[in-house]
Design a protein around this nucleic acid. Sequence first.
RNA 1: GCCGAAGUGGCGGAAUGGCAGACGCGACAGACUCAAAAUCUGUUGAGGGCAACCUCGUGGGGGUUCGACUCCCCCCUUCGGCACCA
Length: 825
Amino acid sequence: MKQYDFKQMEKRWQRKWAEARAFAAQDFATDRKKAYVLVMFPYPSGDIHMGHLRNYAIGDVVARYRRMQGYNVLNPMGFDAFGLPAEQAAIDRGVHPREWTNQAVSTYRRQLIAAGISYDWDRMVNTSEPAYYRWTQWLFLKLYELGLVYKKDSPVNWCPEHGVLANEEAADGTCWRCGRPVVRRQLSQWFVRTTAFAEDLLAGLDELPGWPERIRLMQRNWIGRSEGTGVIFEIPALTESIEVFTTRADTLFGVTFVSIAPEHPLAERLADIGGTREDLAEFREKVMRQTSIDRSAEEREKEGLDLGVTALHPLTGREIPILAADYVLMEYGTGVVMGVPAHDTRDFAFAKKYGLDIVRVIEPLDAEDDILPYTGYGVMVNSGDLDGKSSSEGIALLNQRLAGAQLGGPKVQYKLRDWLVSRQRYWGVPIPLVHCEKCGWQPVPEEDLPVLLPEEVTFSAGDTARLANNPKFVSAICPRCGGPANRETDTLSTFMDSAWYYLRFCDPHNDRAPFDGSKIEYWMPVDNYIGGKEHTVGHMLYSRFVCHSLHRAGIIKFKEPFRNFFSQGILYKDGAKMSKSRGNVVSVDHFLEHYGADTARMISLFWGPPDRDVEWQEGGVEGCARFIKRAYGFFAEVWQQVSDAPQPPDQVKSQTAREILRIRHLAVKDITASMDEWHFNTTVSSLMIFLNQLTEVWQEAPAEVQQDNENRALMKEALLALVKLLSPMAPHLAEELWALADQEGFVMHAAWPTYDERHLKQKEIEYGITVNGKLRGRITLPATVTENRARDAALADERIRKQLKGRKVMRVIVVPGRVINIVAK
RNA sequence: GCCGAAGUGGCGGAAUGGCAGACGCGACAGACUCAAAAUCUGUUGAGGGCAACCUCGUGGGGGUUCGACUCCCCCCUUCGGCACCA
């Protein structure tokens, strides 16, 4: 039997594909439908492992399948190349981030090619190159033009020695470099107003039936729409009033105090009036010191401070105290909350601690449940003329009443926050804004883009504001008045780079615009977006936001970039996610060296359904490697016998021929179905079954049967079908066999085989016979059997008669082609 | 706490109302071999029986149905996401 030498053969096909530009997508092809298949592009670090490969294999199987179905496929890849680890490597090893990044990019690319992934590399993008980030800056300025960019104070993790830290650098509340405690410090930073599209982003989810429901749900929860009531509290000591948001207007009569976030600007003014200025400063200091860890500590006692000022209850006119409270979030709602101790757990604990009044205003419907705080709905009491109304009636009436009195009314609140895009880092896209003493912040004119990231940089330990320390970079001219100005020295979050890269793939070399409108129209939206669920609310939401805004600006015609989303599972090993830091990676290079790309692709899909997390199993690897060897050996041997067979006749006579025909059509049916459902693990099974059945039918046949022209003709067709069906999963093997069979072109461009139900029919079918649902026997019946005959045959079966002895047959149910159930008492 | 996903042989998994365990791994037995590896053949859910066969079996409990891994209700476990959201 001929041996399959994967090392040499895989290399050869990869070269031939590249030479023929076999993976190239064709802009504007009208003879075929387009299919845009996209796997989330990676941050390039080190090299890829089998966990990554599984994701790329999923996308590649889809892309190759679509090509064979006749689609014009766009299957691109690029690199999210800005970001922290490169800067880290620079500090640790003294390599320039660009060099480090480019090194990683070329390794990734080499490995992806070696795995036979069919990317159109002519379209590769690298977000750290000026040719790309120029247009990231353009995008930022578009958002700026649309009034969606603004600056505000926001806290950062701050280490006195190392400056601003990312969350993962301050994970346990101490600096990862020096171990000093991390404090929160206010810094003026750039934000993008994602909240302006909250309603659109929410509504858009309903038009994405191709997204898994749980992913849509996560986005929905993240946007966090909540309907309620705005309530205005007048503050007699101040000419201003404050507004709160509540979903429980029915508890309004139970409000006994108002709490405000300590960092709220108004808190300071209130403290001035109340004479508690210093107390507030101290309190605020204390709260700001709390790292995220302290904040999330369970059952942490709430702390507050009476500011010494009162507000007026909008309905009763009673004076109620205003307190600063650490459980009130500046970022949500108005940063001010009404306190209803009787019906809110937090307010209750808070009121107990600070001796505030507790007034019950809701009676539960179930009198048993009569302990405070009672947070459920019920009947209103102590609420003036609203006594006796239900919670929902009360909410409706109070909405009306407050609106009528100009004291608030119905309001919708979102949990979604604006997008913080400033990073105090070097290795990122410079924010294209300059600050002029006279004219304030000014956008860099489009024709002056890109604002180049200076290549010279020193990575001394210490603060991270490397651009701010570069006078050549900082000094600029105000585009408005021509006077001296300073450049913004923050860079953009890499989420901005990745929020639009899928658009750039449609037109990656355009140097006059980020993309050509007609190309975008042709390719977008992405038909199958494949990636990890960890990006569900970050990247996926920002990308949607960018398209919604570009749509509003009239630049693109669609709002939703990803028609279908497939959330791939994670590969685990030794109970943990495969990652370099865990030291449990299986290197792709190592695996390819031992088993080759086809085995790597197959096993990574065979482990389990692609959307499910799976555990690395050494065992299955051998199975796939063996399958590939057997497929090659069987094909090479049998092809010699059948290659010169004549065309098969229209009507097949011999039993062997009919069986080969049936096996082939069944395989096409099963494999097509599992591909369509993305159940690639069962695709692999079906391929194995197909080969097993062909082997069996052929090897058991005597020589004269193998020499029969009809049988040979059908075997030849079956073998060619096998090669095509193998092609998406094991493309190198398939090409090798295709060439061995002397077929034209690449099998990857051949048409996907079809099947005909007529050939699936068997003359005889084995039925299971069950008595009261339990299997008691089997019987083989002609496929054309009538229900009556099937029933009689089942009842006549000896085993069944024994089972039924002494029992009375009540009913018999015949399920055609499957089972006969006898109901007996 | 809230939301979501998942629990099937020794292992990965298959079957979404019709013969549970396809396919693969592992294990056992056999063939080839001086021997081993590789390869091939057979067996392999558990328990009972010399056997033909019988009983049990998809996290647990209940229900619907002629029939439930599959649908409904309650519970348990594991894993993910969010978490002072007013």
